[in-house]
């Protein structure tokens, strides 16, 4: 026996939910594709997560 009750709304909204899911997957694919395209173009690959930012690191003396 399923632990959730299937309501009529779930059936009515099935098409809509699948549509929204496909849109989200499509959006993810586009963001991924854009990232790859930008990197191939030579765009800045400096990230902000857990690494020193080369552009703001003071030059070493000596």
């Amino acid at each position: 026996m399923p632990i959730t009750k299937v309501h009529d709304i779930h059936k009515h909204r099935l098409g809509r939910n699948i549509g929204v899911a496909l849109c989200l997957v499509g959006f993810m694919a586009i963001v991924f594709g854009l990232t790859i395209a930008k990197i191939r173009q030579g765009a800045s690959m400096e990230a902000f997560d857990h690494q020193p930012r080369v552009s703001i690191t003071p030059p070493e003396e000596g």
Binding site: D8, I9, H12, R13, G15, R16, I18, G19, V20
Partner: peptide
């Protein structure tokens, strides 16, 4: 949504 669904008029994608 329930009201709309019950009269079969809920918006589809």
């Amino acid at each position: 949504a329930h009201t709309l669904a019950s009269r079969g008029g809920e918006a589809q994608f």
